[in-house]
Every structure is written in structure tokens, then in C-alpha cells.
Simulated assay, not measured.
Amino acid sequence: MTDSLKYIPDPTSNTPIVSSSDCVGEGLFIVFEGGDGAGKSTQVARLEQALTEEGYDVISTREPGGTDIGEKLRGLVLEHGQGIIDARTEALIYAASRSAHAEQKIRPALAAGKIVLCDRYIDSSAAYQGAGRNLGTENITQLSLWATQNLLPDLTVFIDVPLDAGRQRTDSRGAADRLESEPDEFHTLVHQTFGELASSGGENYAIVDGTGSIDEVHGQILRAVQRVLKERVA
């Protein structure tokens, strides 16, 4: 299964796969991934605060969402009561939101030299729609690469939390959204896929143990980000 999770360029495309370092400016694109209840939103906020205090120009954003149209699509795909949303329609909604997000918010911020922190990106679609919805991780990854004109993060932080612990955290928050409400079998596939993506991603991934305290998890993430920042100025 691991081979199908690699980013494979479309041989018919004239647009190369790029990281944010290839964009105009000196921006840095950092993505947070993990299953429901991994603590991504909390850690995005902590990292934004820490980097801002160090003098960096930082913005945080999320998927689906991040733009006006993206937030509308977020409500459509995550809220209950929207009627039947089949797997392919769901995948296309996520891709549409991601396309607007990359074009309207992420690329301009990177070109302006900002650090962009994003809660979920392409790996989430590979895990949730590719594996969870059985649409194929490679198919969904290729869709996202097309939608974003092949924009990949400089660093993906995978916060690894055991499935049971993540589900307990999600349940404690109250009402679950459409995807959080899926059965354990679905979330098992999602969690497994995130792990495989991170394990095969090499130095562009940081696998973080998410079972510690908020401060402990933040410390792991900050060290990984500082490593990337030092490499960029070396």
C-alpha cells in the first residue's frame, strides 16, 4: 500500500511539483496532519504564537476552508443535514476548497515571505477520501496536486495519537461532524494511512508523539520547525 501513497507527478502535466521554497519570496509552508482528536488546531495556535514572538510573519489557516468559498464548502461537506453526499462528490468538494485555498491564500502569503501554518492539506484527502472512502490514495492525491498546481508543503507535521485516544478526545467535544461520526473501521483506515504517508515521506515529515502534554507536543514540533528554518538560511 505504501507505494500508492507517494506523490507521483502526472506525466501529461507541464506544471512541476514544487514546495513553497520554489515560490517567489522566502515563505515557508507547514502543514499539520493527523486523525480526529490529534490536537492539530491547538498546536497550530501554539506554533503561530511561538514563531510570531521570534519575529516571523505567520498566518494560520485550515482545510477545508481558509477562503470565503472554502468556508462555505466546509459547512457543506462537514455539517449534518446536507442530504446525501456520495464519496466522489465529497472528494471534489475538498479539492475545490483546496484549489481556492492554494490560489487565493497560500501562494500569495508565501510570495510575501510569510510562514503559512495549515491545519490539514493533501494528506487528509488521501487518508479520508482515498482510504476511508475507498477511492484510492493515488487517485485522490493526483486530484489534489492538479487542484493546487502541484504545491506541496516544506514540512508536514504528523501528530500521531492512538485511535482510541483520538476518538475519546473527539467524543468529549460534543456533537461530531459528518466525518467524525463515521464508524471505527473508517477511522482505522484513516489513521493507518496517515502513518504510512508520514513513514514514507522522508525528511519532509516530522512524526510527533501526540500523547504527551500540550507543552511536550509543542516542544517536539518547535524543534522540527526550527531545524527547517535553519536549513533555509544555511
Rank of each mutant, 00 (worst) to 15 (best):
T15E: 07
S199V: 01
G195R: 01
L78M: 13
V233A: 12
D160A: 13
E138H: 12
E54K: 14
S41K: 15
L189H: 01
Q43R: 11
Q49H: 14
R120Q: 09
N134G: 09
I214L: 05
L5F: 01
G81H: 12
E26I: 13
A50K: 10
P108L: 08
K230N: 09
A147E: 00
L92M: 15
L135H: 00
R120C: 08
E54L: 15
I84H: 05
E33D: 09
A127R: 03
I140P: 01
P153W: 02
G195F: 00
Q220A: 02
S99N: 13
T170S: 12
D184Q: 12
G66I: 00
I122F: 02
P16M: 11
G55P: 06
P183R: 03
Q104E: 13
I84V: 15
G195I: 02
L229T: 08
G75Y: 14
S144H: 08
R133P: 02
E216Q: 13
I207V: 11
Y56A: 04
K105P: 01
G212Y: 12
T52C: 05
S200Y: 04
G136E: 12
R227Q: 10
A112R: 14
T156W: 01
Y94S: 02
Q129D: 07
D123K: 08
K72S: 10
T42R: 12
R167G: 09
Q129V: 10
A175C: 06
V18S: 08
R88H: 13
G219D: 04
G132L: 04
G70D: 02
L135Y: 05
L197T: 00
D209Q: 06
A50M: 13
L143W: 08
I84G: 03
L76I: 10
R107G: 10
T137G: 12
G219K: 00
F194S: 00
A224P: 05
Q220L: 04
H101A: 07
S200L: 10
V77H: 02
G83E: 09
A176N: 05
L145P: 00
G66A: 01
S200V: 03
R107C: 05
G219M: 02
A147D: 00
T188H: 09
Y128N: 08
D160L: 08
T67F: 07
V44F: 06
V233S: 13
D164E: 14
L110S: 06
I85E: 01
A102L: 08
F158Y: 15
